[in-house]
Design a protein around this nucleic acid. Structure first.
Lengths: 148, 148
DNA sequence: CTTATTACTTTGATAATCAAAGTATATACA
DNA sequence: TGTATATACTTTGATTATCAAAGTAATAAG
């Protein structure tokens, strides 16, 4: 690896680890200390102001529906999510965020907004484009290569 | 959020999830299907051609040494790591990669080389600088803010 | 030479996860 | 209409990752 590649590799690895850790520290504190990161991701995936089914949500999260059942059990118990069976099709379980869940959702959003704002700070508009292009490069390449 | 912020936010979230998943798919296959991602990260942290102590390694991985003990138990059992007590100080346990462990290490390195190569493809040299700068922005800001 | 410190391992607990089996409902078709 | 199949979800049993705290053994400090 040449030195540019090496320094980018280092910063990428570091950022990955750091962001995961910071996100956890930022989110799972004070009013949300009873939430795990997994639970935050479920909340993020259910989304604001929507009603989702279990299977939809599990698919988006790329986990089995059995795993999601347990996550939703906990989130309902903790008061972040409400769950009820559809009247049209009683097999279907509809989940949505409670007010408490909406608050957690917005906290997560704020974290991301701050992350992005900071990433773009000090960059000229055309430099922003470069960054976004570089990130799309990676994603599309790997997606094509590994077909996940 | 304006549209640039929004698209960067989306691609960041997507990349995060995708890369974690691809890395697992890429690494934990064929000759290394008996390794979990956690075990790959332990191997990466021990590093090539070195002898590390348990506590050093646990600190780098930001896990407790109890957790590392279990990880090393498994890696020794699977033949990727060798473990022996230091002769100078019999409290200290020295760990290092076996030949099999070195192979796994290099596989991990190859993944990262490919990731970085792809990130930088299509970018002019000055654009590479922009990217690296943007990434350092994020890391240093959050590090300062959250003091982790 | 006793006490404190260090380095590691063990124990007991919890969370996240899956695959497979189980339950209830809806759909297809004979 | 009645049975077979498919769908949506939950439960069960297992594994892995993780921590805090207790335990063990060796070294260092007084």
């Amino acid at each position: 690896m040449n030195s540019k590649h090496e320094s980018l590799n280092k910063i990428l690895v570091k950022l990955f680890n750091d962001i995961l850790r910071i996100e956890e520290k930022y989110l799972c504190r004070n009013q949300f200390e009873d939430l795990t990161m997994t639970e935050f991701h479920i909340i993020e995936t259910i989304g604001s102001q929507t009603e989702r089914t279990m299977s939809e949500t599990a698919k988006d999260l790329k986990i089995t529906s059995g795993t999601l059942t347990i996550g939703i059990d906990n989130l309902v118990r903790k008061g972040y999510v409400s769950r009820h069976r559809s009247k049209e099709d009683k097999r279907i379980v509809a989940i949505s965020l409670t007010d408490k869940g909406e608050n957690a959702y917005h906290e997560h959003e704020t974290f991301h907004r701050e992350l992005v704002g900071r990433t773009l700070s000090d960059l000229e508009p055309d430099q922003e484009k470069v960054l976004i292009k570089a990130l799309f490069n990676v994603d599309s390449y790997f997606k094509e290569k590994y077909k996940f």
